[in-house]
Nucleic acid binder design. Structure first.
Length: 444
DNA sequence: AAATCGGGGAT
DNA sequence: ATCCCAGATTT
């Protein structure tokens, strides 16, 4: 009892955050000003074209909108509007309704999502679509029933319910936290669960029962365009008169609007190191059939289900010899490529390093290009693949440039392309051919 | 409560 | 470099 009191979150004046609420005077002002502003300033976004409101009575059309809102909201989790637009359009073109999506494969979905990040979201979307369609096809229409679907949490449930079905429920995302923290000058840690709970309570007070979907979008739109994290445009803000952070900043020089919400320091990333080998197979005789080897990552964990160049996670910073040894072992165990077999190394060269930064990992990749000449060609790998669970495929140059790839793999491929470009610029064709045939070919 | 899970744009 | 984005799930 005592302990929980001590930890209780407070607002700027040291008061109890649970005592903060919107008065009956400010609520209608905020609703009216915000909706008026939103009607004038809302961005024209693809998922808004279908979801304008309450006047469509046909169930089918309404559920079509709900599906579009669902897809957009999941894509928008921790992801900027600008990034989502193209992915959303491609997705809706391929799977216009939940019934189309329910028939898709996880492989198709993964490729469509490639580059967008947080790949669990895509898997949950597919699983949710199958669940709904196979369970009778009725789209869940309330926030509480929506939350039963994997990948739909508090925010997304509120967003779909209010935008597609006009349920009077709030949403709280990063924008809403910021807007409300400033409106009420809440200096408590915004990551603290008690603070989050109370911001939900405040958002619930505000949401306009006449236009819940538009109101929720208005708050988020304000947070994204006016009440921004670093440089809010208070002079153009429609609810600046209700903003306590702005008011405090005017009466106290040591206070700024951007002090709200409180900044939370994040943990440093773990440091990982990997050896990446871009394996290019050159078939005997036909130079045009040069192909790259891609392997599929496990369907759980980091970058689940995504394709990548063969790579090995290293113990730490490793020297060239150790990295090559690790790659050799990987290729032998996964594909039976080893010294006894009749393959030739046409080229093995270090391309460079690339540091890829995730939210919680800082991965330094050592990239090499490994051109192999196989007498049996690609079929060689086919025969040796039975002993492993590794899923792999070959992709030619053209396909690689259009394929859905994660950002890191795309970057590595660009390094390879650049390397090859430089090499062919600096070496005449004749020299290249001679060097390959006379000097660089070694036994594995 | 803390860790996991991407990627990119703005500063 | 750092922040943070229309977050959710797992541990």
């Amino acid at each position: 009892m005592q302990a929980s009191r001590v930890r209780k979150q407070t607002d700027a004046r040291g008061g109890d955050i649970e005592d903060i609420s919107f008065s009956n005077k400010e609520i209608p002002k905020i609703r009216t000003s915000l909706l008026e502003w939103y009607d004038e300033n809302r961005r024209d976004l693809p998922w808004r074209r279908l979801s304008s409101g309450q006047d469509d009575v046909h169930v089918e059309h309404r559920e079509r909108k709900a599906y579009a809102v669902w897809v957009s909201e999941v894509m928008l989790q921790q992801t900027r509007v600008q990034t989502v637009v193209d992915y959303f359009n491609r997705w809706m073109e391929k799977w216009p309704t939940i019934h189309h999506l329910a028939r898709a494969s996880i492989e198709e979905v993964n490729e469509m999502w490639a580059g967008l990040g947080y790949y669990r979201r895509a898997r949950f979307l597919l699983e949710g679509a199958k669940m709904i369609v196979e369970g009778g096809g009725e789209f869940p229409k309330t926030a509480s029933s929506l939350k039963m679907v994997k990948g739909i949490g508090n925010y997304t449930a509120g967003a779909i319910a209010s935008i597609a079905f006009e349920e009077t429920v709030p949403v709280v995302d990063g924008n809403v936290v910021r807007v409300i923290a400033r409106l009420k000058a809440i200096s408590a840690n915004p990551k603290n669960s008690a603070t989050v709970k109370n911001i939900w309570k405040l958002a619930r007070q505000l949401v306009d029962p006449k236009r819940p979907g538009d109101f929720n979008q208005a708050v988020m739109e304000l947070g994204a365009t006016v009440c921004s994290p670093a440089a809010p445009s208070c002079s153009t803000c429609p609810i600046s008169h209700q903003c306590q952070a702005l008011s405090l900043s005017r009466s106290n020089e040591s206070i700024q609007v951007t002090d709200y919400p409180m900044k939370v320091t994040k943990a440093k990333q773990r440091r990982d190191y990997s050896a990446v080998s871009v394996v290019e197979i050159v078939e005997e005789g036909s130079q045009s059939d040069s192909r790259y080897l891609l392997v599929k990552r496990p369907d759980q964990g980091l970058l689940a289900g995504q394709w990548e160049f063969p790579s090995v996670l290293l113990d730490g910073e490793a020297d060239l010899a150790s990295r090559r040894k690790a790659i050799d072992i990987f290729l032998k165990q996964s594909f039976g490529l080893d010294k006894e077999k009749s393959c030739k190394v046409v080229l093995r060269e270090e391309i460079g390093e690339y540091v890829h930064v995730f939210t919680h990992i800082r991965l330094k990749m050592h990239v090499e290009l490994l051109i192999l000449h196989l007498k049996g060609g690609i079929n060689f790998l086919q025969r040796n693949q039975e002993s492993t669970t590794m899923t792999w495929k070959f992709v030619d140059n053209k396909a690689l440039s259009t394929l859905g790839l994660t950002s890191g793999v795309r970057k590595v491929y660009n390094m390879i392309e650049e390397f090859k470009q430089n090499r062919s610029d600096s070496l005449p064709m004749k020299t290249r051919k001679n060097r390959r045939e006379n000097n660089l070919i070694k036994r594995c």
